[in-house]
């Protein structure tokens, strides 16, 4: 099938980017979006042109490396599926498909479809890790975690850190991402020990680079890990808890 791809080309962070149209004659329904870009790049290389720079790694929805806006929708038209899992069958023969990098002020374009997502790393660095001395290994069953808590923690730990929630957000907010991490760790025995301090540090860092949440809910539709929308409420819940409790835990 034939597709027109309008792809964002930008050689470096310093220059203006623009959309450039390319034609693909032999796209197949079962191709993933990334394979479509691979196809385009083959074509470009054969024609002695610069291939389109984009990121990917696992190509099976677990690493969070891929991510582009397809017709303005992070990852693509299907809800809750990463770009590597989206397929060409979402389009019709002859369609024009616009492929842009993730968009937010906090994500500057490095090259073509690759954006700088280190802002997410800085939120994690601020407190998204467990930094307590847990002592020598105790019996596995000495620290009880209920089945419900474990399941709930997993729902939020599922975040693969792709950044789609931010590109989806009309405010460029990172609440779903930050809330997912806060909620995940707040449910775990060691994570709980620094719950208050973590909330203060991560939320402050989040506010440095990303916007406010207006409860619009675009993020949870884009999220390839199906992080529940309640994560956006977790942010203020943890912050208010830290405020009232005035403790590190």
């Amino acid at each position: 099938m034939r597709l027109i791809l309008e792809v964002w080309r930008q050689a470096s962070p310093q220059v203006q980017g623009h959309l450039e149209a390319y034609e693909i004659d032999d796209a197949r329904e079962e191709m993933s979006l990334l394979e479509l870009l691979d196809r385009l790049n083959h074509q470009l290389i054969e024609a002695d042109q610069e291939p389109v720079a984009f990121e990917s790694d696992c190509r099976e929805g677990i690493c969070g490396t891929c991510g582009v806006d397809i017709d303005g929708i992070p990852h693509g038209p299907e809800d809750n599926v990463p770009a590597c899992g989206q397929h060409v069958r979402s389009f019709n023969d002859g369609d024009t498909v616009r492929i842009e990098p993730f968009r937010a002020a906090g994500f500057s374009v490095i090259r073509d479809l690759i954006v700088d997502r280190t802002g997410l790393d800085r939120i994690i660095q601020a407190g998204g890790t467990v930094a307590v001395d847990a002592g020598t290994a105790t019996d596995a069953d000495a620290l009880l975690v209920t089945h419900e808590a474990a399941e709930a923690a997993l729902d939020f730990a599922a975040c693969i850190g792709c950044g789609a929630c931010i590109s989806a957000c009309p405010n460029g907010a990172a609440y779903l991402f930050t809330g997912a991490k806060l909620q995940h760790l707040a449910l775990m025995p060691h994570g709980k020990m620094e719950r208050g301090r973590r909330a203060r540090a991560m939320i402050t860092q989040m506010e440095h680079e990303f916007g406010p949440c207006s409860q619009i809910g675009e993020c949870a539709l884009a999220c390839p890990a199906n992080v529940p929308l309640s994560a956006i409420a977790t942010v203020n819940k943890e912050r208010l808890r830290a405020l009232l409790r005035r403790k590190d835990n």
Binding site: D71, A105, C169, P170, N171, G172, A173, G211, P212
Partner: peptide, 13 residues
Amino acid sequence: RGRRSRGNHPRKF
């Protein structure tokens, strides 16, 4: 703040 954090590409969808 929301407008500023969004940058030059307002979300239309």
